[in-house]
Nucleic acid binder design. Structure first.
Lengths: 237, 237
DNA sequence: CGGTACTTTGACCAAATTCAATCACTGTGG
DNA sequence: CCACAGTGATTGAATTTGGTCAAAGTACCG
């Protein structure tokens, strides 16, 4: 998609300056205080995360952006009394850690052993990454959160789970589609705003109805995608 | 916030090009097909919206960005069977209409007579606006949607309503704080993922408990903000 | 006034949660 | 190799929160 811009070079420069300032502030407040001169360009460094360890936690300085290279992370909010909302499940290719304020308002926790590529503010790679993916990552975030909020606010347990499974399956080949769940029943529950028992029961019904096969609790197969789609869209159970 | 950038001019230019392309695509697909030359700079035009009329609807071309100048709009998702999730309520100063794909995935509907400033893609004002507010608007959107999803997924009816009212009240002066609701009970319900009767009942209890005064159904006063805060945070009813 | 749209309240109902066992799978140590 | 924790999943029963249905009540507007 090579568009010719209806934006003058002057305006583009101005835009660049403002956005660069913004990105810079976002990415490394410290650097913003430094000189305006060019700096060395450290390569982005890879971080290895063991399953169930945190990449960042709420309150921590939101200075870095991460690109998931391998594995899966979840983005969670924790209420003071322990209730948890899993806001996102981010697999390879996803960019996470973008936050408005100076401090994270969420935790990012590896669901499996994972590798993330950390992009510091003062490397060219950060700029390249951000120019290429900054907007996409944010727009994607908004889009997914809108879907999630709609599901949480207005869909039944069955619709939520069916939709979740279809999302995981992607638009892949026809059934049978194999899914390797990166999450426990408890985590699905905390993502879909349900009790884990409800999730379990719903899985059981999907199995009884011949819509899914459940090899182990994490290894699933969609046998009847059309039926699952119907359930996700509010069809009768 | 005049930051000196740790980004070379070269990189900034590259960043500018990529982001300009992105913004341009986003803002006016038509213009993207035109020449790269400078274009006249039309001032942003104001649009007057009567209450209950739509600014844009799902599926429509997402070519423009709007800044709310006066009034209030709601951003809604509609499910095929009529269920509705109100994702956002945007008052003066807010920027809306930013969307990922080419088409809107939401509707924007005026709750009151409103005025929005439309920013076309090919005006300098659009660039200025976007450079200045683009990121903020998106980050704000993400932040609010995370809060909403957490509320919808993990909070009780009372917590949701109390939180909603506190949001509307802002961090203003001490009680009594007056609130002029821009929404009906039905709309509050569709925002908080509840039945309208549940909203009404919850209001009634807040009134009985001396936490709020309800002059008319839209004119409210918070009498005991601390108590409301406690309820919003999951305290006992 | 009379009508329409919105709100409140009550009685009942149902989806989902909670409580409580039981089961299945895994890894560990005897 | 098997017993036995330990963790997570499933299932059942009782409960609850919030939803649905129905009937007034109230405000607003021509």
């Amino acid at each position: 998609m090579e568009a010719s811009f209806a934006i003058t070079p002057d305006i583009a420069a101005e835009l660049a300056a403002e956005l660069a300032a913004k990105l810079d502030m976002r990415l490394d407040p410290a650097a913003a205080a430094g000189e305006g001169a060019a700096v060395p360009l450290p390569e982005p460094d890879l971080h290895y995360l063991a399953a169930r360890t945190a990449l960042f936690s709420p309150g921590e300085d939101a200075g870095k952006v991460y690109e998931v290279t391998q594995g899966v992370l979840m983005i969670t909010r924790l209420l003071p009394d322990g209730r948890r909302q899993i806001l996102d499940i981010a697999g390879a290719g996803r960019v996470i850690g973008l936050t408005w304020s100076d401090a994270h308002d969420c935790a990012a926790i590896a669901l499996r052993d994972s590798i993330v590529r950390r992009h510091d503010s003062n490397g060219s790679s950060a700029v390249a990454l951000n120019a290429a993916r900054f907007a996409d990552a944010l727009f994607g975030e908004v889009h997914r959160l809108r879907n999630l909020a709609t599901a949480l606010g207005r869909k039944t347990a069955t619709e939520r789970l069916a939709g979740f499974l279809l999302d995981l399956a992607g638009e892949d080949a026809d059934p049978p589609v194999r899914i390797d769940l990166p999450v426990t029943r408890n985590e699905i529950a905390d993502h879909l705003g349900l009790a884990l028992e409800t999730v379990s029961r719903t899985f059981s019904r999907l199995r009884r109805d011949g819509i899914m096969r459940i090899e182990t609790s994490q290894k699933l197969t969609i046998l009847d995608r059309a039926a699952l789609r119907r359930l996700a869209d509010g069809g009768p159970f």
